[in-house]
Amino acid sequence: MLILSCLANAAEVDPLALVNGLQRELPARTAYTEVRFSQMYDRAVIARGELEYLGPGKLGKRVDSPYVETTTIADGEVTIQRGSREPRRISLDRIPELEGFLRGFSALLGGDVAALQRDFEVQGSGSAEHWQLRLSPTDKRLKTRIEALQVDGAGSKARCFSIIDADADVSILMVEELATLTLPKPLTQKNVELTCRRGNSGP
């Protein structure tokens, strides 16, 4: 907190210090609301559920609505369990792009600055109260799939994780207190981004 309060006075935030500040007790859980904007869709698609971080390389994402799905990533394997179907297992080795992305995500949540810098170029902007981190992949193959990973937050808390695909499709996960917030109307990408930037005090 000491570092963060010092940073509040700085014109530019130190992105690595921010990542460090995100470090927290394990296991970390938060509800989320995901809004997805895609060229394939004629409207935004909303999903709700819970995100879970259990330590390096171990992530969980549960979708509760509009369908039920649990994705767990552990020991280099992705397991997707949908409804009552047989769980599908995919080795992360088979999807190298995904592996890079998840490594970055996991490093971000775990506050592992070194790991993060290995795979991403990290930029920060804003102030300690309303900061934004932008992680651009350095790996060429990951770049063909994902443009950037964006995190909006305030203080030591992240509020939104945005995944910007190479084709400009965007998926925005609102977490912590934003997860239960009433979604902005009309539900446009711009409005959701505004909400992420302003937190509860949004429109």
Partner: peptide, 19 residues
């Protein structure tokens, strides 16, 4: 229906071009 779910999953970027 499964594709909507796929597009929300980590494998989305792989599937999009052929969908």
């Amino acid at each position: 229906g499964q594709r909507v779910e796929d597009l929300g999953s980590p494998a989305a970027t792989l599937l999009k071009p052929i969908l």
